[in-house]
């Protein structure tokens, strides 16, 4: 790893100044992703601005809004009583990620900005547009079992990226319409989670719309009517401690066995957490039943595009959504 400077700013303003004004400075929170990337020369900052002591750790609930500080630990969020009672989907998603040790270090801000686990991104011996623009995407014609099926660049795939965003937490945040609150050189702003992460396009090096030096302060969630019927289903190669092949965060607002509204978001399928608005529409107003779920889930892959090794996701995905919905609704699936 390259030699670097390490600095602890006194406050948010100073932190933002340091990163926005310095050529090659980076915030560091739990460091569980950034340090790994530095060890493999994928991130090569000259300066690390340690934000862990800034007062951004609180988890508060006021008049229908949950505000989670950017430095709240993943494990603290997942264990928080209000998160569990009012936003259980978030707790379930966080608990499905990484390991106990990592969740004890990882922060909410860091989780939002963790980088893809595409193997080609992780090894500098391979070309990778995300690591270095215009070098090509080794995954397009390579081993792409874990890669995206949605949100892909239409024209020049070789100049783009087919990697997926690896976060579990963000899938729940997408389903719950979280707002990301930031403070940058231009002041504070509120970014809906839908707009926060980017599709790769011709700038796959950028994962989010944050500007240089823009610091995440908190994540906000509005109280909702979904807490009774939620499920996070993560499909992976082993029972714990593995990134999602695909994952589904589903939430249903059910009244008298009728679905009033539904939320369905996916992980492991796109460069960002992926909302399935069409599936949600297909669910709204229908009775809860395996049939409803199966029909809605079938809509999910309409726009999918696959590669050599991930074609199975087209078959898997509707099944995962169906299973997640059945679970959220408390139905026993019946199989043929």
């Amino acid at each position: 790893m390259r030699p670097f400077q390490y600095i602890r700013p006194k406050n948010v303003k100073e932190a933002v100044d340091m990163v926005s004004l310095e050529e090659n400075a980076r915030f560091i929170a739990g460091g569980t992703n950034l340090v790994d990337l530095m060890k493999r020369n994928i991130e090569t900052p000259d300066k690390l601005v340690d934000i862990t002591h800034l007062p951004l750790k609180k988890i508060e609930y006021h008049s229908g809004t949950l505000r989670i500080g950017a430095l709240a630990l993943n494990s603290d969020v997942a264990e928080h009583a209000i998160v569990n009672s009012r936003f259980p989907l978030l707790a379930k998603a966080i608990d499905a990620g990484a390991s106990g040790q990592l969740r004890n270090m990882a922060t909410v801000g860091g989780n939002l900005l963790q980088r893809t686990r595409c193997a080609y991104f992780y090894d500098t011996a391979f070309p990778c547009n995300k690591r270095q623009l215009e070098t090509g995407c080794a995954a397009v014609g390579g081993i792409n079992r874990m890669h995206a099926i949605f949100g892909l660049e239409k024209n020049d795939l070789e100049k783009s990226c087919i990697a997926v965003h690896p976060s579990d937490m963000c899938v729940a945040l997408a389903a719950l319409d979280a707002i990301i609150i930031t403070f940058g050189p231009k002041g504070e702003r509120k970014i809906p989670i839908q707009d926060f992460h980017r599709l790769p396009g011709n700038r796959p090096d950028l994962d989010s719309i944050l500007e240089k030096g823009e610091l995440i302060l908190a994540v906000e969630l509005k109280s909702n009517t979904f807490q009774q019927h939620t499920h996070y289903l993560k499909i992976r190669d082993r029972a714990a401690y593995a990134f999602a092949i695909v994952s589904a965060a589903v939430a249903l607002d059910v009244q008298q066995d009728q679905i009033r509204a539904a939320r369905v978001a996916l992980g492991g399928v796109a460069h960002k957490p992926w909302r399935l608005f069409d599936v949600e529409k297909a669910l709204a107003g229908k009775p809860i039943s395996q049939n409803t779920f199966r029909n809605a889930a079938a809509v999910s892959v309409a726009d999918a595009k696959t590669f050599e090794h991930n074609a199975f996701k087209i078959k898997l995905l509707p099944n995962v959504i169906l299973e997640a919905l059945m679970n959220a609704a408390g139905l026993e699936p019946s199989y043929d």
Binding site: A119, Y120, Y122, D123, A125, F126, A138, G141, G142, I143
Partner: peptide, 11 residues
């Protein structure tokens, strides 16, 4: 990845 003769599983 046989185009490179290099493992993509490296951790």
């Amino acid at each position: 990845d046989h185009r490179y003769g290099r493992y993509i599983t490296s951790d």
